[in-house]
Write a protein that binds this DNA or RNA. Structure first.
Lengths: 207, 207
DNA sequence: CATGTAAGTAAGTAATTACTTACTTACAGT
DNA sequence: ACTGTAAGTAAGTAATTACTTACTTACATG
């Protein structure tokens, strides 16, 4: 077995995600990592410190994985709406498919809970979200410059866009698909609203 | 002191909300309610059962409080966009102002965590969200019939709308206002996108 | 006054938890 | 062969936890 520390970190991510910080026991984490409990304490000193290390460990992984750029469609001749539609589906697909991402998402949910009690956790969560929002903001900024988009605060647009996917994917994980219905249709509905708005076109002549 | 049970239920809501289900101790709840711990067990048998009762107890309160109808603007001569803008601000205001609502929101966050482990909790959460979404769906349906809105799936629109506020208000609670910036501006940005979409109007001639 | 009910006090139980100490084993590099 | 390092085993500690038992107090109602 290689790299004991990493195995403990991975196990901790999983157990924290599924049990919450308080619910996760060091015994369970050690077992999940196939190490003796004492090894965990030798390497990480305390449970609290372990959480901190998990955070650091995944910060870098998040930044490379959650980089949206590879999720944008390859062909560049599509219009903005189609592009966003494909991007949205790719995000949703990536969220559903990748098992490790599911764990990360649940870990994020734990961070939400824990963030209210630990400022460092809140801060980590904040920078995590930032990573998702920034590249999208830049993308929107470009689209505005290219005249494809109205002159909207790109940050507002990013938060609305990313927020939708964070929110619905968490919902799906927790209360199942029944509530939200078919994934693709739901996303289409959102993208439709996001790009065109809900108003009738003839009522929009003032803009 | 009147109605011991209700005092325990209120205290439980608070403690569950701030500590999470696992983190909340029966001792702490009893202390918060100014009762002996044994009284708590006499009335509610077990911690698990107490959670269930808190859920039931607040289900009815939620349904009357979270009814959106009273948040709609009184004057009926405003256009849809203005109406939604006011509604959005009222929701945000209600979420920020009412302290008990803040507790409920945090309680909801706990439900998210706990819902993954307890199907009854997930189900309670689901019906809670339903209560928020249904009246809005009906409202949108009416607007479509009145020709004010495009023919969009009203449920999609409701989820997008409610989801935004649930999501951002949780974010604000957890990682503070720094991340999202000024509340009113942010909401304006969202309503703008929600009603008009992000596309340039001249690109929308196809619709 | 008698009696039932809602509450408290006190003490304790069995399990679990984070974390420690002391010792042993396996192995890699010199 | 010697030695340092990374790991395991075993046992235990002090605190906490959900929950119980047995008894007492206060009070309202018939």
């Amino acid at each position: 077995m290689e790299d004991t520390e990493q195995r403990i970190l991975d196990a901790a991510l999983r157990v924290f995600a599924s049990e919450g910080y308080t619910g996760a026991t060091t015994r369970r984490i050690a077992k999940e990592a196939n190490v003796a409990e004492v090894t965990l304490f030798r390497k990480f000193k305390s449970k609290e410190n372990l959480l901190k290390e998990v955070l650091i460990n995944n910060r870098t992984i998040f930044s490379s994985l959650d980089d949206l750029s590879h999720l944008f469609p390859k062909e560049k001749n599509v219009d903005l709406e189609t592009e966003l539609r494909i991007l949205g589906k790719n995000i949703a697909k990536a969220m559903r498919d990748r098992k490790k991402d599911s764990k990360r998402r649940m870990f994020m949910l734990m961070l939400f809970e824990e963030g209210r009690r630990r400022p460092e956790v809140a801060e980590a969560l904040s920078s995590l979200l930032q990573m998702n929002i920034n590249p999208l903001s830049e993308y929107f900024e470009l689209q505005i410059k290219n005249g494809k988009m109205r002159n909207i605060n790109p940050r507002s647009a990013s938060i609305t866009f990313v927020g939708y996917f964070v929110h619905t994917s968490l919902l799906r994980e927790v209360i199942g698909d029944g509530f939200l219905g078919n994934n693709d249709e739901e996303i289409d509905g959102f993208i439709d609203i996001f790009t065109k708005g809900i108003l009738k076109v003839e009522d929009m002549k003032n803009r």
